[in-house]
Amino acid sequence: MTLAPSARSFLTHGEDSLLQAALDAGFVLPYGCRNGACGSCKGKVLEGLVDHGDIQPGALSLADRAAGYTLLCCAKPLSDVVLECREVSGTNDIPVKTLPCRVEKIERVAEDVIVLSLKLPVNERLQFLAGQYIEFLLKNGKTRAFSIANAPHAEGLLELHIRHVVGGEFTSHLFSHMKEKEILRLRGPLGTFFLRETSDKPIIFVAGGTGFAPIKSIIEHVLHSGIQRPMRLYWGARNRAGLYLNDLPERWMAEQAGIHYVPVLSEPDAADQWAGRTGLVHQAVLEDQPTLATFQVYACGAPAMVDAAQRDFIAHGLPAEEFFSDAFAFTKATD
């Protein structure tokens, strides 16, 4: 397989996907869910044939497929392939580990959101980039992926923000049965959603629901590292309860001159007594910025929100290569 435009090539083996083959060869490509749902790993097949594999509905449009695009996490090569995709630098030196962990704290911060704190073995450390995720390895062979919400410098505990999915196997266990001290197995770090620190452009963060988690990690890393880039955070939720850690970004804005925070509710309850912004969170960005030509954008949340943001932001002047995303997607079985 050959990557364009870098012209770097490598061999594929067995039944691996294009993404897995690239990762095994040491090439880091953009990806998110790795199950054909989020669309983050979309690439264009310039030459050769691929089996598109098991792509979930909505992740790759018919127009994209007709134009030669595929999802690298699902597609497998049927011949020599030349693939046009963006390569990512920054994760090559970080090992992916499989580790046990202990549930240290279960904190319910909203009716349907838990902040889960995990403790690793004393002699182990999980190196990661702010914005990456881990996946739990379940006893039935399935996996469940969640973004790391703490910054890399905050060693000791891993923090995850987990929303309850009705009927979801893992989250139902978490909300109803999981106890502190329970032992879990995790694998990570994974994903290519992290801050591109070589840029000095101002940043717009767009979070939907628990998509706040990896963005929290990135912002806390920026503050800790002394990176001087203006940041605007737009956090969208259905109602006030969905902004489950609202005091934190409010404190960032009060204490840091370079941070501006805009919470947005799509369906505020009467009890919320909400006087702030309403509507779709990415629309609030468009309303505030005459053009996005000078920004970098990091968006995390439901696939529909991320897709709409990418489409509308690029139409609003954002360079396509300055949009970075992590679309939360559930596996086909629930949760």
Rank of each mutant, 00 (worst) to 15 (best):
F146Q: 04
S6H: 09
D16Y: 06
P263G: 03
L29D: 05
V50G: 01
V262Q: 04
S79V: 09
P249E: 10
S9R: 13
T98C: 06
L158G: 03
H224E: 06
A299Q: 06
Y69C: 07
R8L: 08
V103I: 15
V281G: 03
A151N: 08
F170L: 10
A151S: 15
Q273G: 15
A275D: 08
I218G: 00
T171V: 11
T198C: 02
K139E: 13
V306L: 05
T334L: 10
D24N: 15
A304W: 01
A241T: 10
T143L: 00
Q273I: 01
K201H: 14
L11K: 14
N239F: 07
D24T: 12
E135N: 08
E15Q: 15
S79D: 05
A213Q: 04
A304G: 00
L245E: 14
A21V: 00
M178F: 01
H173M: 10
V115I: 14
P319I: 01
Q256D: 05
G68M: 05
Y244W: 08
H13A: 12
G26R: 10
V306P: 00
F128L: 03
A327E: 01
H224M: 02
A237T: 07
L160H: 02
V281Y: 05
A327T: 09
E255K: 14
D307P: 00
A154M: 09
F205G: 05
L78T: 04
E47N: 10
G14R: 14
I203F: 03
D80R: 13
A4C: 05
F194Y: 13
I114C: 08
S172R: 13
R34F: 00
S147W: 03
H221P: 00
A241F: 06
R86T: 14
R34T: 11
G279Q: 03
F323M: 04
E104C: 10
D335Y: 05
L78C: 11
V262A: 03
G236F: 02
E47A: 13
R196W: 03
P290A: 10
L248C: 07
P268Q: 09
Q273S: 09
A304E: 11
H164I: 00
S147A: 14
Q127P: 00
C73H: 07
G43W: 02
C300A: 06
T291A: 12
E287T: 14
P249T: 13
A304V: 13
Y69K: 13
K97T: 10
V82T: 15
R240N: 05
V82W: 04
E180F: 01
N239H: 15
I219F: 02
D112I: 07
T278E: 09
V222G: 01
A25N: 12
L83N: 07
